[in-house]
Design a protein around this nucleic acid. Structure first.
Lengths: 146, 146
DNA sequence: TAATATTAGTTCAAGTTTGAACTAATTGTC
DNA sequence: GACAATTAGTTCAAACTTGAACTAATATTA
């Protein structure tokens, strides 16, 4: 029964954090989805839509919409994938890179007081906790699919 | 910097769990919002919309819509609050109670393999850690509001 | 106790997300 | 190499969520 208690607390932790984050992200002129995509692209080499969808856990339909928005803002490029004619490669434009650095740092600065309230040991422990949760969910999904 | 790593893993853990849960909840004929409200009401005495909104972290506008849906399904009652003429009290109908028990147990059964992969010690540790995160977010919100 | 501020809940338009159906390209198999 | 099965990405309608404006009732205060 305390499994559910744990899940509820995980959900509440996420929701509180998300609420706090998204409120701020909106003031920067982005939706959480757009922010998610920018941050994901900002830390990695260019990637396909599928990869992006997998990393952000978005459904593909939503990703298309979000990429359209970012394209209109001139923050990303969509170039055909030379290896796979079906696919495209998404990358940040120069403006997109600048935006990434700017909003990422702004976001970081905003959250700094929260970040500083965690010690390194706590963070390490939490990261291990989450890794363990993720592993277990993975296992469950594997069983569930069968 | 590992603060962000921790946050990313928290987000991923939540999203994975949510995805898994909501997929199943849909097969039961409910949205996550509806499920949230039913489960919140199922464990507590009747409460006001404000209280419900606070517990589920929904905005009030959304809660109204969700309650409308549950009302149409005959799962909740809205009765005027005798103490406060502005407010209403939301409670589960008998059908709502039955539904709560049914979907709650079904959900539990579905997740059982996952639940069993956590030991009691792990769960206790996780719960303590989430409590600590929640406390810190609370503190941050208090500072931020000033 | 009248005027003002706050709070409870609703409404509604705009924006976001989902999921299923679709097109086009690639992979696998015989 | 042709045919079926799979995969990449898009489209679109329906559902969901948000936030701001609104009505009505209660608290505050002077």
């Amino acid at each position: 029964m305390s499994f559910l208690k744990m899940v509820r607390k995980l959900v509440t932790s996420y929701q509180s954090l998300e609420k706090l984050g998204s409120k701020y992200i909106r003031t920067l002129g982005f939706t959480s989805g757009q922010f998610d995509v920018i941050v994901t692209l900002g830390n990695q080499p260019p990637m396909s839509c599928s990869e992006l969808a997998e990393k952000t856990l978005m459904v593909k339909g939503n990703l298309t919409v979000i990429l359209d928005g970012l394209l209109k803002k001139g923050l990303i490029n969509k170039t055909p994938n030379p290896i796979d004619g079906r696919g495209i490669i998404v990358s940040l434009t120069e403006k997109g890179e600048e935006t990434f650095v700017r909003i990422f740092n702004a976001h970081l600065a905003y959250l700094e007081p929260l970040a500083k309230s965690f010690s390194d040991e706590e963070l390490t422990e939490l990261i291990n906790n989450f890794d363990s949760i993720l592993r277990k969910i993975d296992n469950f999904n594997r069983l569930d699919r069968k």
